[in-house]
Design a binder for these strands. Structure first.
Lengths: 185, 185, 185, 185
DNA sequence: GATGAATGAGCATTCATTCAT
DNA sequence: GATGAATGAATGCTCATTCAT
């Protein structure tokens, strides 16, 4: 009668799946063939479809923890930083660190393919308010000009991150320039 | 048997091909199936392979005129603009206008796939010196800080352009922020 | 520990299952995925397999009542109708009404797939004698010619019903033509 | 320059394809996996898609000759038969002979799947007028009642044929009953 | 008895590239 | 030089059935 054992098993399996997906995403990007992920996890492809009906679901699940951490980091930085602008800059660094290390993530975040709509929604629902609040605070403190759409800023970070960090392409630095461009005066 | 007619024929054929490719690129992006391009041009696929062994060759050929125009625009702007910074900004706008209107171009410019290396090479060989000179001039005029790698700046423009212009995502504006971030002082 | 309650439970469960199957058959046909039926019933798929090892078993169970009713209708019509021919025609109308409204049923009744053999057997065991008696009576009354195999007639009804009733395809009418063709003289 | 050799080759290949498809249709039905047909023909699957973009196209091509023959047989029978009714009966026999020997064909002709619409269209466009004329002639000769929709009659033949000829299921006989049911008086 | 998670085979379809004519 | 037919690998997705809990 008890469904505990089942759930425990299933949960472990799910975590196994997410680990495998994360690993494959690192080497082959978030658009890696489902088969590869299933192979890595040692399960059948249908098992993945059972847990994550769409690829967007899988990607969201894989990165949920980190997205949540990003969401929580916003207010925390606002409190711990010397100025709101500093908080904004640090938070964008975190965002860059996150996106830049997820192969192919930036690309699907820019994709128009409707199959990724749920992915966009999740990221924006969760992070746009955070970014918005950081921007607002920096405006209020007089450090940056008003009027920057947080959505636009986040997509810009995504775009800049899509190239990945390379010897002659420093994403953090570029995002730094971008926000520097927002400075007031 | 003079070979003039043949050459004329071949050139016409090649231009026909480029027109077709350009048209298909507009509607389906630069990664459109070779078949579609061949169909549009009314030739066999092998004909495309003969003229342009790799897709990179084809893309380069399609956009060569515009890239050359961009290359030439740099010095011209430098002369005609009030300040080097203004010239830089205008040139980057031109670059944005170019990339943003070429469906999928920004994506392949960011791609790591070695098959696009010749494409990267061409763009950089041709445009990096131009960008470099604009940056140098703006540094010399004291308008921006020194040290900005032109390669990095151009890739940044590519990354920001990859999203395409949308109601809430204004690429020109973002690139404007970026260079604003370079300002001295 | 009396097993009455268990039996009651089991019976209720089974009926729930049949209701769910019937509902899904209406919308998706008798070849609907087992999963859909299980989901509709709110049970696991294995539960369905336990109660009905094969799909044929499930289909039989779902339609048993109606098949029994058809079986009983034969003699009744024979008594209540003006002539045996009229009884035959009315019974075939009932048969058509039954089959035509069961999405996909006619198709599986025609299928050669041995997995449906039990289904065929049940239908024939139960209905062929009824049809046979109706035919015999009509022969005896001199209304139709002798020699019509009831099995063949029933399969014909199945085949004609497989198309489903549509604006320009009236199954009842066609079956009517068929039996009219049997008329003597 | 001449494309003769190509065409000859391609045509031979196409015929090879049709032969293979016909053979596989006999053993596995018209819904046989494309792979099987390709294997039988000794070609890649894409070759089939090139020649016949949809399965409907392939089926039509495979049976075109026979359908054309059926279409031509109508008027011929009308001339050569003793009465229009005889012509109609013979033509329906031919239709039965055709459909009954094509595994799965009757099923797809009854299918609602829009992917088979072109197939339905072809069959009806080609054969319905023929059937219609035969019916009209038999009406005019006073042998059958007016009002039988040729579309309905043809679908009925399809439905009756779907079962395939079997020891206790004689399709010709049943279709004979059907038209007998149309007799006047 | 019941559950529902896992399985993995099976199929349609696309596309870059090659090669005989 | 040009053609376009053929290739066949690659991938997403579904579903009947089994089995450990």
């Amino acid at each position: 009668m008890s469904d505990r054992p089942k759930r425990a098993d299933a949960r472990r399996n799910q975590e196994n799946l997410l680990d495998a997906a994360a690993a494959v995403f690192v080497t082959s990007g978030v658009e890696a063939p489902i088969r590869d992920i299933a192979a890595k996890a040692g399960v059948g492809t249908a098992t993945i479809y059972r847990h994550f009906p769409t690829r967007a679901d899988l990607i969201v699940a894989v990165y949920r923890h980190q997205v949540e951490a990003l969401a929580e980091a916003g207010p925390a930085l606002l409190e711990s930083s010397e100025t709101p602008y500093a908080a904004l800059a640090k938070w964008l660094d975190l965002l860059v660190d996150f996106v830049v290390t997820k192969r192919g993530l930036a690309a699907v975040l820019q994709s128009d393919d409707p199959c990724y709509d749920p992915l966009h929604s999740y990221f924006l629902d969760r992070l746009e308010p955070v970014c918005s609040r950081l921007l607002d605070a920096a405006v209020e403190s007089g450090e940056i000009r008003a009027g920057q759409d947080p959505y636009e800023l986040m997509r810009a970070v995504g775009g800049l991150s899509a190239g990945g960090d390379k010897p002659r392409y420093n994403v953090r630095r570029l995002v730094g320039l971008l926000v520097a461009g927002l400075r007031a005066g």
